[in-house]
Design a protein around this nucleic acid. Structure first.
Lengths: 250, 250
DNA sequence: CGGAAAGTTGACGCGGGTCAAGGAATGTGG
DNA sequence: CCACATTCCTTGACCCGCGTCAACTTTCCG
């Protein structure tokens, strides 16, 4: 039964145990058996096209999603219609936690590039957590990370200058690409100036001017979406002191 | 054994099933048996004095805390020493989620007034969640709420004017006090202008001027920490349109 | 090829930060 | 109970970072 065989291969292809992102994702630290159990609750769906929504505000929030490839933008809208970008999700990162609150998503998630995601229905995940303490702990770790990341962002928006915000944004992307075994210094921005500005609480003209300014200072070269960080160290220096102080006090 | 009896009464006093905050807190929606199980993992500790820390950045993060009375301020510091206030915790609300990330708190939590808290060690809570699906769901609900609240805050800091920020802050306090059966229009601010400004990403002079400005417009009267919201409706009107749009799209 | 979307650049002005001075409340020691 | 310091808050003057408006260029896509 060649057809059956083929299907089997496809299944293996998309399993957690073979996923190169496992270290960055929920399976992190799980053994093969545990990964297989996790696999069993994951729904693979058709890839999202750019501009296509993964979920919208008000949709019944029933799943947590892991991004396998591409890039998602999470945003929400106010009653009077304007948008706030909440974040960008890269492969190995999770979205959809906010659906846990009252069963409906508050935010929206849209693909910026063609993206494939793994969907994990909350209720299945919940059941599985009962049997797999390591999964439960990992979920809570992810939750804690999310909270910490939001705190970092609040600090950026509350206290930092436009220059520091953009530098922090670029450094964050750099680090995240690096941990995915991509170049830390050369990459394409998956998002528009509009999205960057919105995310950082800046006007798009300001973002554009800052890119020009950074270029003058030989910190980077930029052409539309293509970025080369020519002096990553100095960029990191600009952000230094703006980061959370993680030094233990005890 | 009168001593024994006395102790028993004290225990009952502080149990979830007798706590007036149960509806706002983790026990929400649990039956008596479940509450008793939850009680068993809660550690009651001596009240915190104003200025005393519940936990500090770097401390081993081992517990989730529920505030029973008083008010806590959560904040974190940058490497170069300045502070970002992340939020204020009122009775019935939880703090300490950020310790879930890597086992250490990233933020600090300090009492603004004399405060008593219930401590729930993560590991006990984790075990209990395995037996009590309703608790597990409630924990995840709280987590989702936390994420949503952070999103709302990001929007405030990213998009809103100083005036809208302070109005939103006062309305939020009003609503939270009301759901604790306290006056929605007359209360004392538990925090200083410094803290308010820091939290809202504003200079303390701006906060002060805005209070004066609001007073001229007969929106409220304020004397140091004492606030009376004389036109709550109009205040809410100022915030309208800044709130997340929760209308279902499907 | 044409129209729209995305990005850049310059001119201008305002919201709110900064600096400075002073008042009111609270604490502290004599 | 009073003098004094300290902290918290208020108010005014000034000015700069960044938003807004506008014009233009480049890229994208049917």
């Amino acid at each position: 039964m060649p057809a059956r065989k083929k299907l089997k291969i496809d299944e293996i292809k998309v399993s957690c145990s073979n996923c190169s992102l496992a270290d960055l994702c929920l399976p992190h630290g799980m053994n093969t058996d545990e990964m297989e159990a996790l696999d069993s609750v994951i729904k693979h769906q058709a890839p999202l096209q750019p501009g296509q929504h993964l979920y919208r505000s008000g949709d019944p929030g029933i799943s947590l999603f892991a991004v396998r490839s591409g890039c998602l933008k999470t945003y929400c809208t106010t009653e009077d219609g304007d948008e706030q970008v909440l974040g960008f999700t890269l492969p190995g990162e999770l979205v959809g936690l906010d659906g846990l609150n009252n069963g409906h998503y508050v935010s929206n998630s849209i693909a910026l590039e063609t993206a494939s995601v793994c969907a994990m229905p909350y209720d299945h995940l919940e059941n599985l957590c009962r049997d797999l303490p390591s999964l439960q702990r990992q979920v809570m770790r992810i939750v804690g990370k999310e909270v910490t990341a939001d705190q970092e962002m609040l600090m950026l928006l509350g206290k930092r200058s436009a220059e520091e915000r953009l530098a922090a944004f670029l450094v964050s992307l750099s680090i995240r690409y690096q941990s995915r075994n991509l170049s830390a210094t050369e990459f394409n921005l998956p998002m528009s100036r509009q999205d960057i500005g919105n995310y950082l609480g800046l006007a798009i003209e300001t973002v554009s001017r800052l890119f020009a300014h950074f270029q003058e200072q030989k910190l980077l070269t930029v052409n539309r979406r293509a970025v080369v960080l020519t002096d990553l160290e100095r960029l990191k220096g600009m952000v230094e002191g703006c980061q959370l102080d993680k030094s233990a006090t005890s």
